[in-house]
Simulated scan of single mutants.
Amino acid sequence: MCRNIKTLFNFAPPATEEEIRAASLQFVRKLSGFHKPSQANQAAFDHAVGEVAAVARELLASMSTSAPPHDRDVEAAKARERSRQRFQRA
């Protein structure tokens, strides 16, 4: 759906409040079609971001897995390599 929303589950260390909020903001931006809402819509937009973040926090806290947690540095390196390959000039 939105490439900027990153997976937050099963990482060591766990997702931070900032990461959850950033993913929530991207989700609401995608749904609303606005990068920055008008003043008339700002309160509704901010409320939606807060609600999505709360639900995301609840979801992450309630999920479980037997898989070992992913290493953030390793996953970031994989993402950089995918990006390099994708955007490399022929």
Rank of each mutant, 00 (worst) to 15 (best):
T65G: 01
A79T: 06
P13T: 02
R21Q: 06
E51K: 13
A56P: 01
N4S: 14
E19D: 02
S24C: 02
R29S: 03
A44W: 01
E19A: 02
T65R: 03
S38F: 12
L59E: 08
R72E: 00
A15P: 05
L8H: 11
T16D: 04
H47V: 04
C2E: 15
A44G: 09
S24I: 07
F27I: 09
D46H: 12
S66Y: 06
A67S: 06
V55G: 04
P13R: 05
Q26N: 11
I20M: 13
D46A: 15
I20W: 06
A12M: 08
R57W: 03
E19W: 08
A90M: 08
S24K: 07
F11P: 03
A53M: 01
E18T: 13
V52L: 07
N4W: 14
A43T: 10
S62K: 14
K36E: 11
K78V: 15
A22M: 09
H70E: 09
G33D: 01
A76P: 01
Q39S: 12
A61T: 02
E58F: 15
G50F: 04
T7F: 07
G33Q: 01
R80I: 04
R89G: 03
A67G: 03
R89N: 05
E19H: 03
A67D: 11
F9E: 10
H47Y: 06
S66K: 12
A40M: 06
A15T: 05
V49Q: 04
A56I: 09
S62D: 11
R80C: 03
E19C: 02
A15C: 11
R86C: 11
D46K: 15
F34Q: 07
A79V: 02
M1P: 09
A40V: 10
G33L: 03
P13Q: 07
V52M: 11
Q39Y: 10
S66V: 12
A79E: 10
A43E: 12
V52H: 01
F34T: 04
K36I: 13
A54L: 15
S62G: 12
S24G: 13
